[in-house]
Design a protein around this nucleic acid. Sequence first.
DNA 1: CGTTGTCAAGTGCTT
DNA 2: AAGCACTTGACAACG
Length: 332
Amino acid sequence: MKIGYPCMNNSLDCTSASTFRLASYYEERLVQTVASNLACLRRILEYNVAHGLLFFRIGSDIVPFASHAVNTFPWQTHFAAEFRALGDYIKAHGMRISLHPDQFVVLNSPNPDIVQRSIAELVYQGSMLDLMGLDSTAKLQIHLGGLYGDREAAIARFIAVWHTLPPAVQIRVVVENDDRLFSLQDCLQLHAATGLPILFDNFHHECLNHGEPMAEALRLAAATWHPTRDGVMMMDYSSQARGERKGKHVSAMEEDLFQDFLQQLQGLDVDIMLEIKDKEASAHRACSILRNLALVPAAPAGYVPPIFPEAGQPVAAKSRKPRKSAAAGPAG
DNA sequence: CGTTGTCAAGTGCTT
DNA sequence: AAGCACTTGACAACG
């Protein structure tokens, strides 16, 4: 079992999601930004290894405008060595990686332009995993898409588009049950038609289900992951923020609920992504709980116990990077 | 230097 | 018809 958190680390003074406005796009700035993002990603991974957090979701903004027509820079070859080194590091430490393209990726849209843009985004994100040399257990996590007033037609369109995906992308795509439109049952129907694995989200399942108990839902989702091709089932874990809109994620892990959830696993092996606002802080807590239950290995050599911050207090102040000066302005 | 409106991209729901 | 929410975060303009 591996524990992870998505995209950002609040303890480090860097971000791997630096971007800029389309209006201020120019190539030199792109190169500078990607280099900076990859350097920060490396630091985040090192932090994770040092703290025994072996599951991580890489953000979508590593290469700004990667699937936009404005970006014609061959970043894949320019940064090949950097991506390769990251992949070597990931493999050397047995880390698991996922990416989660955002809401603009809608494979079942009736609009063919949107479908094409969605595929381009998947190709971009999948190619990062390819460049890192990671196998098909590194996944691209998406939702089924829109409903458009006809559930069966919406699912059928997804299946039709899925069959047209490049094989390198197809083998990485996994579908997550969402909290309003497409339930675990819909995802199982999709799995039956395509064989693609279901990334199970416990909180979404609580919001939208057909009465399946959590333990049963977990087993159903786990059975969709091919042991060698896909690896151990990935899942998202969260819980309801009290007093907030239904579906709103908590800001810090509620340890009792997490302990209750672990009981529902009934021995099932999963890699758990904590979709909780305070990121690595909750991941540390989860890891600590799992170490006590002997579900994850003892702390790695040289492990420094994290200082749990008070609620709302950042561990380290973010220091702003110096502004890029006008020296790198567009040609002239 | 702090504040705040805005940002490539989609969909469904609420007002 | 328009605004909002979705892992919101971070850029960029303005004072």
